[in-house]
Write a protein that binds this DNA or RNA. Sequence first.
DNA 1: TTCTTTTCTTGACAATTGTCAAGAAGAGTT
DNA 2: AACTCTTCTTGACAATTGTCAAGAAAAGAA
Lengths: 191, 191
Amino acid sequence: MNTFFEQNNVYLLENPELAEAFQNIMTYQKYPKHTILHEAGKVCNHMYIIVSGISRVFYYKEDKDITCYFAAEKETMTAIDSFIQRTKSKYFVEALEDLEVFKIAHSDLENLFESNPKYERFGRLFLQQLYIDLVERIDDLQLHTAQERYKKLLAKKPYLFKRVHAKHIASFLGMTPETFSRVRGNDHKND
Amino acid sequence: MNTFFEQNNVYLLENPELAEAFQNIMTYQKYPKHTILHEAGKVCNHMYIIVSGISRVFYYKEDKDITCYFAAEKETMTAIDSFIQRTKSKYFVEALEDLEVFKIAHSDLENLFESNPKYERFGRLFLQQLYIDLVERIDDLQLHTAQERYKKLLAKKPYLFKRVHAKHIASFLGMTPETFSRVRGNDHKND
DNA sequence: TTCTTTTCTTGACAATTGTCAAGAAGAGTT
DNA sequence: AACTCTTCTTGACAATTGTCAAGAAAAGAA
């Protein structure tokens, strides 16, 4: 996954004007653990940049709760389908820990993009990085065993395994909690 | 998958200026079947809009040939990792049929984006749609059986099943050719 | 703390998918 | 057409993963 500040800091931090422009449309906000920041069925009008805490995006597939995205410090999060297409979302966004975030309204972001091409450009470059991240995730899911998917995520985002319920990671990896538990058990043996 | 002309026709066709700008940087080209349009290990400097024919993007995972993308008429195609990041690609791009395409150089596209914010804007909106398509593909792979993945693709892109080798569709769907064959067999029974 | 609820682990078994091998079917060439 | 090469299908079996159930462990509430 991508981070607004880290992976694109070239654009947001090295250019004071860009940083200021974004700061002007961001509002700092806190949410307690378990808060639902966005509900499925509604149009999502905000995106969030996480200052502290972890959140997840999930949806229901035949009563089963499927996590499709995690966001932690410095990462961004929104109900992406709705935020982009301006339609009702299938996703929920939930705080898994107490959250501190910067909140950005869709309309403000659009206005910013329209106000000056350099912001539009930043938006495009940012999306490009998100796109690359997704391509990688597809590769992972397309032809890897449960064990391999587990190891890859553990290497990439070890903190998830300490801070997030196993069942959420399991569904994110496309396996049952039971399989996740067994795969984790195997992995510990190889230490 | 997305199409330059279809899904974004709002932008490309309704605005004659935009259409003309793109036509100025596109060159029409033909490639015979089996042509490798891009080789892994090289930086990919072009994207293609397909006029006729079908192509695929693939890579090797431990000697196994994995297809990760198909593009047919009106769709776009490139070695996306390299085209976006300007690094060596892991992907090959291959013509599965005789191809007629419009070819666009990365540099020309960048220049176009920089020349006027409305092109930059089109680029961003186009990427947004590609992103949504990928999110959908992840949903498919994350928690569906081989049978379900087969049926979804058959409903969405039936022409693939007539024009492309089964083994390529199988790897695209994340299953072996044998499983693909059996799943296809099951499906015919339910007619 | 104790009590309650949820999550995690483990076993037994079932379903799905992969592997290997052999033959059939199909495409391409001469 | 015959020949060659590749792809597709099918069977037998193995490996992986899912389902269900029960108990252990952990987290949250009183």
